[in-house]
Design a protein around this nucleic acid. Structure first.
Length: 941
DNA sequence: GCAAGGTC
């Protein structure tokens, strides 16, 4: 059995198809020669005596050996990670075990992973898995830069061996990244007392990228606009307006500009006419970066563009989207692709390209061995794709066509003029041959047409414009610009660059589009830079690249390179550990700064966003505890509160938004405005409140009912200008409102927990409908009918379940309130006694025997509940009474334990009770035949 | 809980 291992499932399938087809003698006999199957959850492709399967990229991962998982360990400090041993552990266990299984009996294994460094390492990982169960099977390596019949057949006809040096270079990179990344991440997170979700990460790629963004921001902040002046004249020729610019493009000095303006005098005399042509080169094929840049012009974010391209790739519409290559390999049949594309709705453009096909396709600078440039791989129907998918597909198709289309040509025209002692110029251009622009329609070809003029022509001067302008700072990075810049600096790869931005955002190092750094992002970069940690420098990547080259060439070994890196990292830690406190403080100060949203209106100290250990967050005064002013915010379950740049004009406080992963941010706006409006309704719930009173409270910075209920009465007296008695009354009212609100929020919480969100029916909506209908607490909900609930966006079954759950919760709460202790309550519930009504209706003796609770205690509970419910409590029951009655009853022949229980349930606990009972009724209540009851009654007598 | 790199 020949085992072929590809880097990914799709590659495995295509390789199998090509090899199976190439094997067949006559090509006319088409059809599914390849048998697709699933083994251990992995797709397999079999033909003849061959089985092909795809990995999922790296199927093993490196990590530290066990013992290093505790970040705060006294023994294994971050520093010890530098020399910690690393291990490889499987990440795709099913694939690993399948390879092991097949390898045992394989007679040949071919590694057919991607033709690049990481592919070689992935191949070596597969090789090691094979070797773990089969020491002898020959292992080949097939290398190809496109999965075309030609390349695949040659690669398999002439296989090579694994390049272990190249793979070792990849391993060195892996280990160095882990050592530096993990040790520094832990160190700096601990120094700044950050844990859990808010750790501060550091890495060879993310940190220099962050540093780039921080640097740009500093450049912008430090930028001082310089004024300059631009001079132009408006004129016309035979009715066509002409604007001519002064040949000094920018005057740095105002006096010079004014002087030139003075020296400008009519007429404008044409002194030179220059005609020319300009070639506008057709664009090069797409690699990942240029594709992301082009998609950005269509308003796709980098990550979104890649996700869509990957989708299209998985469906066979476009080639592999992660590539560094801008040169089509010879083996790619470009004309065949054109033919295929004629089936699409873009066939007109395709036809144009075929008719005007340039001999050699355009090419970019980078030719690499991994994959061909991004190109269409199949005809897609517009209806089969989403709008966005189609836009991306069309972009890739049109770019492909453009690379096979002629250059565009422009006719250019340049005039020079004299005006007094000054010289002016005007330039025009006109598209003469559209070329690739016929098919690549993403930028408008704008003509600037000038009227025809000859040397010596005189033109009038209609106006002289002397405009003062200012230089502008460099712009913040857009996502695509950032990716371009990363590529230039060698940071990240075609597959990872677009993810780095997401990582920086999720760590809250940067925000916004275009991206700008947060203070914490800045703090981390500055901490690294100030303490000479070279990881924020792209130079580190360059050094690693050089070392990898040396390992590949076998001039250095993997371990030599790692060891050198470890020595460096140890020096870094010497400096870091000596300054741990200072580093931590610097970052924490930055963090605090980011949370300050303005001045406290009461005492003038800073107001700061604060989070408690639980889910609540608020804005508090840094003057606490002397000043207790605070502003409420929605629970952190809706998102973490973040300061925004915008400032409220009324309160002079920064706006706040709540951010949560996977959700749109919730724009709170001015937190105080929000606080005021969300508390207004509650304030109005106090019977004696009115707008005027609320205005007075606000004037004293009292905004919530909670404050009215809890502030010192003196403050209220002062704020409202009333007497103590009124204030005391008001405080009582506020307490009442708080209680109503507490119950309402309990109800909302319950609804949120038990109502499944669906389109158009959020739990919040259901809760709002309940409050609207006057149902304000759990008791109210428990008392509702299922019918009423179905009016509130719930289905009949949902209503019933909700009611059952509500009643269970409500009853438990009610029973606790009546005085049944929690431990006993548990026993009652287990025995099926769940409602207050049960306690009133059932005999305490019955409650006792089915729960094992002493009769006296059960009686006490029943009494408490009945009193609470306003029902006559049962007569006292004692252990002795129960025992005597029980013995009496059991003496009656034919009356056993199970019947006894039924009698208890019906309230009969002794012979007296039995005798006095109505036999018919008791029969019905117990399910015991009436004659039998009569017989028992007779026996008593 | 940490990196970066594959792939889904």
């Amino acid at each position: 059995m020949h085992l072929i291992i590809a880097e990914k499932n799709i590659a495995a399938r295509r390789i199998a198809e090509i090899l199976a087809g190439a094997d067949s003698v006559s090509s006319e006999k088409k059809g599914p020669k390849v048998r697709t199957g699933k083994d251990n959850g992995v797709n397999t492709y079999r033909f003849d005596d061959t089985i092909t399967l795809g990995l999922r990229g790296h199927v093993v991962e490196i990590d530290f050996e066990p013992g290093y998982s505790n970040w705060r360990s006294e023994i294994n400090t971050p520093r010890t990670l530098i020399d910690a041993k690393t291990i490889k552990k499987p990440t795709a266990k099913n694939i690993v075990s399948l390879i092991k299984k097949i390898s045992k009996t394989a007679t040949l294994v071919t590694i057919a992973t991607d033709y690049d460094r990481e592919g070689e390492l992935i191949g070596k990982e597969a090789f090691e898995i094979v070797r773990s169960t089969n020491k002898d099977v020959p292992v080949h390596r097939a290398r190809f830069s496109a999965i075309t019949p030609q390349e695949i057949t040659t690669a398999f006809e002439d296989p090579a061996g694994i390049d272990f040096d190249l793979a070792a270079a990849g391993e060195a990179r892996q280990i160095i990244d882990l050592l530096w990344g993990a040790s520094l991440t832990r160190f700096i997170s601990i120094a700044a007392k950050r844990g859990g979700k808010s750790i501060l990460s550091v890495g060879r790629v993310q940190s220099p990228t962050l540093a780039m963004i921080v640097d740009r921001e500093k450049e912008i902040e430090a930028f001082v606009p310089e004024p300059y002046w631009m001079l132009s004249v408006d004129s016309e020729k035979d009715g066509t307006p002409v604007t001519a610019r002064h040949t000094t493009d920018r005057f740095q000095d105002k006096r010079e500009a004014v002087q030139a303006e003075h020296n400008t005098a009519a007429p404008l005399v044409v002194t030179s006419v220059k005609e020319g042509t300009r070639t506008d080169r057709a664009p090069a094929p797409f690699d990942t970066t240029s594709f992301i840049v082009a998609a950005a012009r269509l308003h796709f974010s980098a990550a979104n563009a890649m996700r869509i391209a990957e989708d299209l790739y998985m469906n066979g519409y476009v080639s592999y989207p992660r590539t560094d290559n801008t040169v089509y390999p010879k083996s790619l049949d470009l004309d065949e692709i054109l033919k295929e594309l004629k089936k699409t709705s873009l066939s007109k453009a395709v036809q144009w390209t075929q008719a005007n096909r340039r001999k050699e396709p355009t090419h970019g600078k980078k030719s690499s061995t991994d994959h061909p440039p991004i190109h269409p791989a199949g005809a897609a129907k517009k209806e089969a794709l989403t709008d966005d998918q189609w836009k991306i597909y069309e972009l890739i198709v049109r770019r492909f066509l453009a690379t096979l289309s002629p250059d565009a040509r422009w006719a250019t025209l340049k005039y020079l003029f004299d005006a007094g002692t000054e010289t002016y110029t005007a330039t025009g251009s006109r598209l003469t041959e559209a070329g690739y622009r016929e098919v690549y329609t993403y930028s408008e070809a704008k003509d600037t047409i000038l009227p025809e003029m000859q040397v010596g022509n005189h033109l009038p001067i209609l106006a002289i414009n002397n405009e003062e302008k200012f230089t502008t700072p460099p712009p913040r990075y857009s996502q695509s610009k950032l990716i371009q810049q990363m590529e230039e600096l060698g940071l990240g790869t075609k597959s990872t660059r677009h993810e780095v931005i997401g990582k920086l955002i999720s760590r809250r190092y940067v925000e916004g589009t275009p991206v700008r750094p947060t203070l914490v992002g800045r703090g981390v970069v500055e901490a690294m830079e100030n303490h000479n940690v070279p990881i924020t420098n792209p130079e580190m990547t360059r050094t690693i690249e050089q070392h990898m080259e040396e390992i590949k060439e076998a001039n250095l070994t993997r371990d030599e390179v790692i060891s050198e890196s470890q020595t460096m990292l140890r020096h870094v830690f010497d400096a870091l550990e000596a300054n741990e406190d200072q580093i931590g403080r610097e970052i924490m100060d930055r963090n605090d700064e980011e949370r300050i949203i303005g001045k406290c209106p009461v005492c003038g100290h800073d107001l700061m966003i604060r989070q408690t250990k639980g889910m609540s967050q608020f804005i508090g005064c840094t003057g606490y505890p002397n000043c207790t002013f605070n502003i409420g915010l929605p629970s952190a379950m809706w998102g973490t509160a973040i300061r925004e740049d915008k400032v409220c004009e009324i309160h002079n406080l920064n706006y706040v938004r709540l951010i949560r992963k996977g959700a749109r941010p919730w724009e709170i706006g001015c937190p105080l405005c929000n606080h005021i409006s969300s508390n207004h309704e509650a304030l109005m719930m106090m019977p004696s409140s009115d707008e005027e009173m609320i205005a007075r409270l606000h004037a004293s910075h009292i905004y919530s009912v909670y404050e009215v209920a809890n502030l010192e009465p003196e403050r209220l007296t002062k704020a409202l200008g009333t007497d103590k008695a009124t204030v005391a009354c008001l405080r009582e009212e506020a307490q009442g409102v708080l209680e109503i609100l507490r119950k309402r929020s309990e109800l909302k919480k319950f609804v949120r927990k038990h109502v499944v969100p669906r389109r158009g029916r959020s739990p919040a909506k259901v809760a709002a409908a309940l409050v609207e209908a006057g149902v304000g607490d759990m008791g109210g909900l428990a008392a509702m009918t299922p019918e009423a609930l179905t009016q509130m966006h719930l289905s009949a079954t949902e209503a019933e379940t909700l009611l059952n759950e509500t009643r269970a919760v409500h009853n438990r709460a009610a029973l606790r309130e009546y005085g049944v202790p929690a431990v006993s309550l548990k026993k009652y519930f287990e025995a099926g006694i769940t409602t207050p009504a049960d306690f009133c209706a059932l005999h305490p003796a019955y409650l006792s025997i089915i729960t094992g609770i002493k009769p006296e205690t059960a009686w006490k509970h029943a009494t408490a509940v009945c009193t609470g419910m306003g029902v006559t409590p049962p007569k006292k029951v004692t252990t002795k009474m129960v025992e005597t009655g029980r013995n009496e009853l059991l003496d009656i022949s034919g009356l056993g334990e199970s019947m006894l229980e039924r009698l208890y349930r019906a309230g009969v606990i002794d012979t007296t009770g039995l005798k006095d009972a109505d036999a018919k009724k008791l029969g019905k209540a117990t399910g015991i035949p009436t004659e039998k009851i009569r017989a028992f009654q007779d026996a008593c007598k």
